[in-house]
Design a protein around this nucleic acid. Sequence first.
RNA 1: GGCGACGUAGCCAAGUGGUUAAGGCAGGGGUCUGCAAAACCCCCACCGUCGGUUCGAGUCCGACCGUCGCCUCCA
Length: 480
Amino acid sequence: MALHVYNSLSRQKELFVPLHEGHVHMYVCGPTVYNDAHLGHGKTYVNFDVIVRYLRYLGYKVLYVQNITDVGHLLDSGEDRIIQGARRERMHPMQLAEMYTRRYFRDMDRLNVLRPDISPRASGHIPEMIDWIQMLIEKGYAYEVNGSVYFSVAKFKDYGKLSGRRLEELRAGARVEVLEEKRDPADFALWKKADPAHIMQWTSPWGRGYPGWHIECTVMSIKYLGQPFDIHGGGVENKFPHHECEIAQAEAATGKPFARYWLHNGMLMIRGEEMHKSLGNFITLEQAFERWDPMVIRFFILQGHYRSPLDVTDEALDAAGRGLQRLLGTVRTVRRRLASAAEGEAAPQVLEILEEGRRRFEESMDDDFGTPEAIAALFEMTREVNTWLNAERAPSKGSLQAIDDLYRRLAGDVLGVLPEKLEEEMGAGLATKLIQLLVDTRSKLRQAKQWELADTIRDELAELGIQLQDGPEGTTWTLL
RNA sequence: GGCGACGUAGCCAAGUGGUUAAGGCAGGGGUCUGCAAAACCCCCACCGUCGGUUCGAGUCCGACCGUCGCCUCCA
């Protein structure tokens, strides 16, 4: 089965065929860098990271662009989020944006999210935005009033095609006070006039001002990916108005389609509610990392489908951590035995187990990136591999290598939940040697049947997070 | 009020017309072990409620109940 993806635009699963064979151009709405990233950001960018990784696994050359919004998001009060943050932190807005941009990448790195190929900053693309707005004015889709420019939604007949909304409903249901300078309550701002006190402002044909919220994504995605491009991703909560407006700006200006496949991921919930500052259930990634390994958080996220909402509880995260340990435990065993394995071809039985696992994994991923099922396939394969390892006294190097390779590709390259080196493999340091010394000493005690002392050593190491396993070929240990 | 999504075991979560409803965690019973741990084996759901369509529905349709999202900034 070839890759199928659910396209929000058509509301159905479609065969994925990129515009240019072998290449995928993809854009995902990035963060507004005025605050620390939270678990919800974690879910979104892990979800799209796996999509990028799987496309690459399939052999596509992916150009992945994700913007950094450092200007342009307005609060209800009309205040810029970045400026509000800058006031709070007593910093220059650009200093604040830079600080949170770095923290964002730091958090994403820990979640093993691959960096986008291009991370364009909105503030660095003001001239391109101005040009684009000019084009919209010239074509009659936008109008200037008092130094601000608005997009006239009534002129763009496809407005609402993504979110399934009609203009009448929008006007009727408008909950915000309507600026009287807009010709139509549903019109949205492309450029806002800045009062002199506004710190972030630029010169434009309409006077000093700053760009509206939606224009940056239209301009930067097309600048780096062309028009149309293959995939546009983002959270469902941005379907309207943000993505709808992006489409309007892009397609009205050029008459060409914008993005071909729209992928929207579901929200992360805390005990059944959307994570939100005002609800007091806001968990930053940094806070979460204090309690859970970033890989565990990543694994937990991938146990749900990207389009579904995902409910976070302490219990569920703990459970995910134990599950991941089982998977890593097998890789650990394989790598350990690989060190002393005899040369030899891979056993046909092993190749059969691996082939079936790989087939099921790909089949699940091909169906709209079904990571939960792909992980299930991995668990079932793991059980069979373990059974085989238990039975095989001297597995050949070829067999072990084949197993390790497949885990590296599926759990490592695609899902990104397999660290390059497991904890125990990293240490050639003093701690490792001391642990080995204790383990060896305990082995001698066991040979002498001094169970009590041997058990004490085991228990006390366990309290330090070092778990011992006595097997027929000696004692091994694992760092939990 | 309008638009949309969802409701599957103690918890998380796949499945979306057809033999025994994935997987993980927890729980119970075993094998292995000096005892453990790890691993492995076995057990553990009639799919929100009611009605309908169908030879056959968790899977389609309708109503109701409940939860959530969007309509305003949000990943």
